[in-house]
Design a protein around this nucleic acid. Structure first.
Length: 447
RNA sequence: CGGGGCGUAGCGUAGCCCGGUAGCGCGCCUGCUUCGGGAGCAGGAGGUCGCUGGUUCAAAUCCAGUCGCCCCGACCA
């Protein structure tokens, strides 16, 4: 999860010439008054704030909030650091634990404390901030699709789902195997809301005093839950190769002590040659030999499958006689004999193929459970009540209509999808009220 | 905060109605045989039955209180 440092170029980014974000760390405890400076922000986060009221055995003059997010403390500092347009843009990233006292928790998806990455930037113009917010959404998308093999729909949030204090919120929405949507990452154009609240001003090239334009963006350990619920099957986890701590596990098979030493010796040779194999720049294949004694090979197979390790190589006496092993893919459970001589290339290619296949399978499943044709409201209600999925339809833009649909079905507008996800023919009327559609919306039940 | 449910060995549980020797599976230890899809046999270790009080000759079991956890709803990355 190292994509936020800004060192890479997003496939969907518009520029690559920007400075990467600086990694930083800001305090956990935030004076309560900071939170109150931006009206929308405090309204959104006050109900879920964990508050420190006592310290050193005494009641504090001013309570401290355990950060639910760090806009307020970071922009307080930005305001001190920025005087001139020459100080901008300023781009910072931090990994931090945050606390949000939600009424209900859900393992990985909504925990009281969670680890995340949050980025905060300040810019000279609205357009530059907008570009940054969009660019980071693309970086997140690239990571989710390229690494987690979890396809996402990107788009803009409606007012009702917008981040507290933001001008616009964009999100990545993934479909889990129960057809519910998971908001896997967000990026916000904060406009000048926070810069006005925190007096984050600069002198422009022409000499005038201006408020800066901010963005913030984040992804969390929720992505771990996304990976589990995107790829897991009845056998256990399926971890995409790029994320797997072990890419290939060698399971030796033997009876006698003599066989054992022969097989383990061969396994070690294979491991050594695979670790020499340059698969990615400055990265080696991650190989483990499961030499545990007193555990039968079958038991080891089940265990590594449960843990989702992408590839297993079985090596036994019969294989050694032929200078081969049996390679098994976790995703398809396909088994085939492989020559031990040319293993590096084979394993490397197989892992790459698995990474692509896992994304393709997930994408296919998402599309198979998406409705893009015109749908009546009655049929929509049935659909959300039964199998569920993503429904693309017109929306009149009226929040009341959006709220009514949620009341009726529990489904919400996950986003107003970006162009590439929209229907070939733009919907003309609203899903519920038949008024003219002002935009296309993607509806789903969500976590 | 409402509505359900559950606390018994490291983990999962039976027993509770109908009070009387705490049992099973997994895991763990020792030995032998095994080992190409979750090993078999033999022996063994491990329990203040969440906690407090009450009823009783006797409480895991009945009663009261209390603490903790899980699920469903309202809130949300």
């Amino acid at each position: 999860m190292a994509m936020a440092s800004g060192s890479g170029c997003s496939a969907s980014s518009t520029t690559c010439s920007r400075r990467p974000a600086t990694n930083a760390y800001f305090p956990l405890l935030i004076p309560e008054s900071f939170l109150h400076k931006e009206a929308q922000h405090v309204e959104g986060f006050a109900p879920e704030a964990a508050v420190v009221t006592h310290g050193g055995g005494k009641k504090l003059d001013e309570p401290l909030i355990i950060r639910p997010t760090s806009e307020t403390i970071i922009y307080t500092m930005f305001a001190k650091w920025v005087q001139s347009y020459r100080d901008l843009p300023i781009l910072m990233n931090q990994w931090a634990n945050v606390v949000r006292w939600e009424m209900r928790t859900r393992l990985f998806l909504r925990t009281t404390e969670f680890l995340w990455q949050e980025g905060h930037t300040a810019h000279v113009t609205h357009d530059e901030a907008e570009e940054e917010a969009r660019r980071m959404l693309g970086v997140y998308r690239d990571f989710m699709e390229g690494w987690i093999a979890m396809p996402v729909v990107t788009g803009q949030k409606t007012d009702s789902e917008r981040f507290a204090g933001a001008l616009r919120t964009y999100s990545c929405e993934a479909m889990m195997q129960d057809n519910k949507a998971l908001q896997a990452g967000t990026s916000h154009n904060l406009g000048q809301n926070f810069s006005r609240a925190f007096d984050l001003k600069f002198q422009s090239e022409s000499g005038s005093t201006e408020f800066a334009w901010n963005t913030s963006w984040g992804v969390s350990t929720r992505m771990v839950g996304g990976m589990v619920m995107t790829h897991g099957d009845d056998v256990g986890l399926r971890v995409p190769p790029l994320l797997a701590p072990i890419e290939l596990v060698i399971v030796p098979i033997y009876r006698s002590d003599v066989e054992r030493s022969l097989v383990l010796e061969a396994a070690e040779r294979v491991r050594h040659s695979l670790c020499e194999w340059d698969r990615r720049e400055s990265s080696r294949l991650r190989v483990h030999i499961d030499a545990r004694d007193g555990m039968k090979p079958g038991a080891k197979y089940y265990e590594w499958e449960l843990r989702g390790i992408p590839l297993r190589l079985e090596i036994g006496p019969r294989d050694l006689a032929n200078n081969q092993g049996v390679l098994v893919r976790r995703d398809t459970r396909e088994k085939r004999p492989v020559s031990l001589d040319v293993l590096g290339e084979d394993v490397s290619e197989t892992l790459s193929r698995m990474q692509r296949d896992m994304l393709a399978v997930a994408l296919e499943r998402r599309e198979a459970n998406s409705v893009r044709e015109r749908i009546s409201y009655d049929r929509f209600r049935q659909f959300m009540d039964a199998e569920g999925g993503f429904v693309y339809s017109g929306w009149c833009g009226d929040p009341a209509c959006e709220a009514q649909i949620e009341d009726d079905t529990k489904a919400t507008i996950r986003c107003l999808p970006d162009e590439e996800f929209r229907s070939a023919e733009a919907p003309t009327t609203c899903l519920r009220c038949d008024r003219a559609a002002t935009s296309e919306a993607m509806w789903a039940k969500s976590y």
